[in-house]
Nucleic acid binder design. Structure first.
Length: 448
RNA sequence: CGGGGUGUAGCGUAGCCCGGUAUCGCGCUUGGUUUGGGACCAAGAGGUCGUCAGUUCGAAUCUGGCCACCCCGACCA
């Protein structure tokens, strides 16, 4: 602990790394390129999962789970997809270890236990899922098939960064199959809208929706749509993607259905995903030099209550008051933490909860007991106000709503200030060199 | 995969050039004083110096191999 987070302006990337560690979100694991998500960080991810999962269900999707391992022959069936991911795959080649005869107590890979066919650890699940869909889909009556999977995937990246790029990451991947191209495109766009809506209303992160260029699109897709958020260093972060797959995977895995007219046709596919990278986006979009700033809708703790006391007896009096307040807030669905640790001073606790981004802090001491008041502080602006104890429970909901909105507005204002129009290529280059941010420019859509 | 760097207590580090059994801070334990913005004092616990080998009477320190991680590039959610 301590005021050791480097300032955002000095070294953005270092600031980010320190913040992730200090706020108790995640740390590098001893395993190459992998990350340990700590309980506090994971609880934020769970909040994201819950909100997203509800939105998926509301749009007619169901959850399922498919295997971690993809036999190489399945993996290579859709050529573009296979080629696109080939350079970053982890592969299982053996299924057994044995004791090393020349080095007691150590294990070696048993050369006799080589697999007939290597297993690819999924970098994405299109292959394994489409090979399964082949069995599930016979008739137009089986469609649309709307499935989502919460899973981990492995992409053997050379350089990793906490939440933004790790060898293994958690995500959700939707895989749908449809009777017509139109319906599949609609699904693709619908899910992009779901992501954009989630980013803006839950993460308080304004995003730009768009379509990827030929060079950037998902391997195996006809079209890739994405949402991009603006981070405080003026750089874009891709926060979610939605792909229209056309009939590419249906053809690769021979997934056909009988139409009403009795004809056989290939189904139309989509896939879409967001990952724990959203955690990185959330952190980079809002936080300041004092730590994390969480939008209330994703905060695992909405309100932290810090008692200020000199004696045990004083703490008891405060605790009695706090119990009433906390239970009335909890009844309204808010998560409340009473920080009654006696080995830290209030100032330390203030700083710690600010570091962790808890939206609202309530301090209550002997002075408040006498006056029937509390001190309410909001994390985003650090404004404090003294409030009547009796009014707290009823005014917290509005305060949290206000914080959610004000975080969004701040991000939106910043984002808009960093969008610069350019009419010529020279202008574009100049803006990117000098100002950064987004550039609104003309483009004819070609590679050149 | 190219270029650079680091590895010493739970964390962050000094010592390395010039070899003699490891420094300091945070944290932890105990006791006391404290508590409205990151408390203080005292005592205490905690280390095969990444790993394997070599040189040497003696290696954290010198030499070689290996491993891991970090930073910068290319690639990506």
């Amino acid at each position: 602990m301590g005021k050791e987070i480097p300032s955002r302006s000095e070294d953005y990337s270092q600031w980010y790394n320190e913040l992730v560690k200090k706020a108790d979100l995640a740390e590098h694991s001893d395993v190459r390129g992998c990350m340990v998500i700590k309980p506090y960080g994971y609880s934020i991810w769970e909040k994201m999962q819950q909100a997203l999962d509800k939105m998926f269900k509301d749009t007619g999707h169901s959850n399922a789970y498919f295997p971690l391992f993809v036999p190489k022959s399945l993996f290579e069936a859709e050529e573009q997809n296979a080629e696109g991911f080939a350079k970053e795959c982890a592969i299982v080649t053996h299924y057994r270890l044995k004791t090393d005869p020349s080095n007691k107590g150590k294990l070696i890979v048993d050369p006799d236990a080589k697999l007939e066919e290597e297993l690819v650890v999924r970098p994405t699940s299109e292959a394994i899922i489409w090979s399964t869909y082949k069995k599930w889909i016979q008739s137009y009556r089986d469609l649309p098939l709307l499935i989502n999977q919460w899973a981990n995937v492995v992409r053997w990246e050379m350089r990793t960064r906490l939440f933004l790029r790790t060898s293994e990451f958690l995500w959700q991947e939707g895989h749908t199959a449809h009777t017509t191209s139109d319906e599949a495109v609609k699904e693709t766009v619908q899910m992009l809208d779901v992501y954009a809506h989630f980013a803006e209303t839950f993460m308080a992160l304004p995003v730009v929706k768009g379509r990827k260029s030929e060079g950037e699109k998902f391997p195996g897709a006809i079209d890739t749509y994405c949402i991009e958020g603006m981070m405080q260093d003026g750089k874009a972060l891709q926060a979610g993607t939605s792909h229209f797959l056309g009939q590419n995977f249906a053809k690769a895995f021979n997934v056909q259905f009988a139409t009403k007219e009795g004809k056989l046709e290939y189904v139309w596919g989509t896939s879409w995903g967001v990952s724990t990278r959203l955690m990185g986006a959330l952190i980079m979009a809002h936080s300041d030099d004092d730590g994390l700033i969480l939008p209330p809708k994703l905060a695992p703790i909405h309100v932290v209550i810090v008692p200020i006391f000199r004696s045990d007896e004083e703490l008891v009096r405060i605790t009695n008051k706090v119990d009433e307040l906390a239970s009335s807030l909890r009844k309204q669905g808010y998560s409340v933490k009473f920080d009654d640790r006696d080995n830290y001073k209030p100032g330390f606790k203030f700083a710690e909860w600010e570091l962790k981004g808890v939206p609202v802090r309530i301090a209550i001491g002997p002075r408040d007991l006498d006056n029937g008041t509390v001190e309410v502080a909001r994390r985003d602006t650090k404004e404090k106000q003294v409030m009547k104890m009796d009014d707290v429970a009823t005014s917290i909901p509005a305060l949290l709503d206000n914080i959610q909105e004000s975080i969004y507005k701040k991000a939106l204002t910043f984002r808009n200030s960093m969008i610069t129009p350019a009419d010529t290529f020279d202008e574009l280059k100049k803006i990117l060199d000098e100002k950064g941010g987004f550039v609104s420019a003309h483009w004819d859509g070609t590679q050149e």
